[in-house]
């Protein structure tokens, strides 16, 4: 088998005395969709921040395309091919939707004209083209989440980290976002997705990694993980005897 695209090796990240992420290891192969789940406070977003370079791990390494990237700043990783979205969406509110995506396109297309053409293509893919000239602040929540994905996508990433892009959407919008994610996979992008909505995770993930209190408690195909007693315990608590 070929080398994994992303290799997370015994990564630990502590805040003061708290192990937000403790010795977590997993790997991702090209073209996979991996779901990252766990109860609130399990360390999912912290792990995202470590992989995308916002935090340096205290221990452990992360290899991307065979290269050690632990502790590299986010703007370097973005150019290397790691795109991410934020759970709390961060649009450039005062700029238009198109300008938002042009800024992200500069990573691969430094010229303004090419960046703009590329941004239009991205907006066609994500279905925001008809809102291109609207202020980002005027978008609905669904629109803003789509804009987050558009910006990350404009980097032409090989690995995309999606942090709760479905949560908070109504069922129709959720279905459209799921379609979008699946179409991204068909474009050859490898995706790590954090989501609380099990319907989403179970349907689209090839494998699922479960975190609880910063540690990995299970990994496997969605059906097996859903049956795992440790996972059930983490979510529902211990059954009374």
């Amino acid at each position: 088998m070929s080398e994994p695209l992303l290799q997370v090796n015994a990564v630990t990240k502590t805040f003061g005395g708290l192990h937000a992420v403790f010795q977590v290891s997993f790997q991702m192969n090209s073209g996979e969709i991996i779901g990252l789940i766990g109860p609130n406070g399990a360390g999912k977003t912290t792990l995202f921040n470590v992989i995308s370079g916002f935090y340096a791990p205290n221990k452990g390494q992360i290899h991307f395309k065979g290269q050690d990237i632990s502790g590299k700043p986010p703007y370097k990783l973005a150019v290397l091919g790691i795109g991410r979205t934020f759970q709390v969406v961060k649009p450039f509110a005062g700029l238009t939707v198109l300008e938002n995506v042009i800024i992200a396109s500069f990573a691969k297309h430094p010229k303004r004209r090419q960046a703009e053409q590329h941004a239009w293509k991205i907006l066609e893919t994500t279905g925001l083209a008809d809102r291109a000239n609207a202020q980002a602040s005027s978008l609905t929540l669904a629109g803003r989440k789509r804009l987050e994905v558009s910006k990350a996508l404009a980097l032409e990433p090989t690995l995309l980290l999606l942090d709760e892009v479905v949560a908070g959407l109504n069922p129709t919008e959720a279905d459209r976002t799921i379609e979008l994610i699946l179409s991204l996979r068909n474009m050859g992008i490898t995706i790590l997705i954090v989501e609380h909505i099990m319907r989403v995770i179970m349907n689209i993930s090839d494998r699922v990694v479960v975190l609880n209190f910063g540690q990995k408690i299970a990994e496997g195909i969605p059906r097996d993980v859903a049956m795992d007693s440790g996972v059930i315990q983490a979510y529902l608590g211990e059954a009374p005897l």
Partner: peptide, 26 residues
């Protein structure tokens, strides 16, 4: 107003974390 630099500084003004995740060194 014309060159990429203008949009880059505005990105920093609007949200430097998001700018960082998009390849800009704030």
């Amino acid at each position: 107003e014309k060159a990429p630099f203008g949009l880059k500084v505005k990105a920093i003004r609007e949200d430097d974390q998001s700018a960082m995740s998009l390849g800009l060194n704030p």
